[in-house]
């Protein structure tokens, strides 16, 4: 992978990040070299290996779908931690024009 294609604007948009001009200049230089560094993994032969996120052999850990452990205090703290609210209602901006 000699040529690293790194479209900064496309990635910043996907990442929902506003970058300053200074950050833009810095990242344009740094990110392709980091990508070049991590590309050395291609040297490892993994043709016979499974890709696993978790190494533990447990799968699908569920609990019963029951309401538990909530109290008035936690409830009010959760609402207080939300940026905008009216009474018990959480206020969010509209997503349709």
């Amino acid at each position: 992978m000699a040529n690293i294609e790194f479209n900064l604007d496309r990635v910043a948009k996907l990442a929902m990040l506003e970058l300053t001009d200074q950050e833009r200049a810095k990242f344009q230089e740094q990110l392709p070299s980091i990508v070049a560094y991590i590309s050395k993994l291609q040297e490892v032969d993994t043709s016979n290996t499974d890709a696993k996120t978790y190494l533990s052999d447990r799968v699908n850990v569920f609990r019963a779908d029951e309401v538990c452990d909530s109290d008035e205090d936690t409830h009010s703290r959760l609402i207080a931690a939300f940026p905008n609210s009216k009474g018990d209602a959480l206020e969010v901006p509209g997503i349709f024009e």
């Binding site: 993994l41 291609q42 290996t49 499974d50 890709a51 190494l55």
Partner: peptide, 15 residues
């Protein structure tokens, strides 16, 4: 696939 999946496979090998 080239990066994330590859890294997970290497993770298994390291384990």
């Amino acid at each position: 696939d080239a990066y994330y999946k590859k890294a997970l496979a290497v993770k298994t090998e390291i384990f």
